[in-house]
C-alpha cells in the first residue's frame, strides 16, 4: 500500500462535532480501514467559512491561520479537512500568507500577540476525498470492498468550494488535485466500491448552503435543482462530501416535497458512509439513521 511518510493533521471543523457527526464516524471507519492516520488538531477553532470574510478580511485569514500554525507545530506537512468550506478558508489563508507580504506581516503580528507559533504558508491543504483517492489509491480501495454496492445508482454531488477557486486550492494547477470544472474523484471511489455513478449536470452547482436560513428561496431552489437533476438521471441517492451541503439539502426536503412533489426526493448520504457500507460495515455503524433524510429504505432494498 502506497503509504505517505509525511505526517497529516486532521482539521475536523465545527460541523464534524455537531450536525455532521455521521460524517465524522464514517470517515473515521474508512480511514481506519485504509490505514490512513487521523491526527486531530487539538483545540481547533472555526475557520470562518465564507461568512467572516464579509466582515473583516484580516480576521477571516487569522482564524484559519491559527489552525494551520497549530498543524505545523504538530509537525504536519498536510492538513486534511472534510468540509468544502473549511478547505476553501484554509487554502485561502495559506495562499494569502505565502503570496501577500503585507498580509504575512500583519498576520505574524497577530499570531505573536496570541502566543501562537509563526506561520508562513508551507502546509498543504487537502480534502478528505483527495487524501483517500491519492494516498491510498483506487486499487487499494477496490481490494478492501467486501460488499460491493451492486446496482446502486449514485449521483455524486461535489458542491462549490471543493476545487473552486483554483487560485486558492490549486485545482487543475497542481498534481493530485481534482479537475475544477468536472471533478471525478468521488465517482472513481464509489465506482471502485461497486456503485454505478450517474452523469448529471449540476455536480458543482451551489447548494445555497451559505444562506440556508437567510435566503430561503435561493436555498430551496438550488437544493430542488440538485435533487431534480439526480432524479432525472435515474439516481437512487445523492452522495455528498460537505456537511453544510448535506444538512442544507436535507433541511429543505420537506419544503421541496411541498413545492415540487415527492417524486424528485432522493435520500442524501455522505460518500464515506457508502464506502463504509461497501467495506462490510453495518448501516448502524455508518450512522445512516442519523442523517435527516431517510436512506434506510433504499439501502434495505439493496440488501444492506
Amino acid at each position: 500500500m502506497a503509504q505517505q511518510n509525511e505526517k497529516m493533521a486532521y482539521y475536523p471543523g465545527c460541523s464534524m462535532d455537531g450536525l455532521g457527526k455521521a460524517y465524522q464516524k464514517s470517515t473515521e471507519v474508512v480511514f481506519r480501514d485504509l490505514d490512513i492516520p487521523m491526527d486531530r488538531i487539538k483545540d481547533y477553532n472555526c475557520c470562518g467559512a465564507t461568512e467572516v470574510k464579509n466582515i473583516s478580511y484580516d480576521l477571516s485569514v487569522f482564524l484559519p491561520t491559527r489552525n494551520l500554525a497549530l498543524a505545523q507545530e504538530m509537525g504536519a506537512k498536510t492538513v486534511i479537512a472534510p468540509c468544502n468550506g473549511c478547505v476553501y478558508a484554509l487554502a485561502r489563508a495559506n495562499k494569502t500568507i505565502s503570496e501577500d507580504s503585507g498580509s504575512r506581516e500583519r498576520l505574524g503580528k497577530y499570531l505573536a500577540e496570541a502566543d501562537l507559533p509563526q506561520y508562513s504558508g508551507e502546509v498543504e491543504v487537502k480534502h478528505v476525498l483527495e487524501v483517500i483517492r491519492n494516498s491510498v489509491g483506487i486499487e487499494a480501495v477496490r481490494s478492501k470492498v467486501s460488499k460491493p454496492l451492486k446496482g446502486l445508482k449514485v449521483a455524486c454531488y461535489y458542491g462549490c468550494l471543493y476545487t473552486r477557486p483554483k487560485v486558492y486550492t490549486g485545482a487543475g494547477l497542481q498534481s493530485g488535485k481534482d479537475n475544477p470544472e468536472h471533478p471525478f474523484f468521488m465517482d472513481e471511489l464509489l465506482q471502485a466500491a461497486g456503485a454505478t455513478t450517474v452523469d448529471y449536470p449540476v455536480k458543482t452547482i451551489c447548494c445555497g448552503g451559505g444562506h440556508t436560513i437567510a435566503d430561503r428561496e435561493v436555498s430551496i431552489g438550488f437544493s430542488a435543482a440538485i435533487l431534480n437533476e439526480a432524479a432525472r438521471a435515474g439516481a437512487d441517492m445523492v452522495a455528498t462530501m460537505c456537511p453544510l451541503g448535506q444538512v442544507n439539502i436535507e433541511m429543505n426536503i420537506p419544503k421541496i416535497t411541498e413545492q415540487y412533489g415527492a417524486g424528485i426526493i432522493r435520500p442524501v448520504v455522505y460518500f464515506t458512509q457508502l464506502m463504509g457500507l461497501a467495506f462490510g460495515h453495518s448501516r448502524r455503524e455508518m450512522a445512516i439513521q442519523e442523517n435527516l433524510s431517510d436512506a434506510n429504505g433504499v439501502l434495505k432494498r439493496m440488501g444492506y
Binding site: T163, R164, D215
Partner: peptide
Amino acid sequence: WRCISCNKCVERCPKGVK
C-alpha cells in the same frame, strides 16, 4: 447581498479578479 459565495466567478475570471 444574495451572492452565496460559490466562487465560480473567481474560478473562471481570465483577469484574476476575485
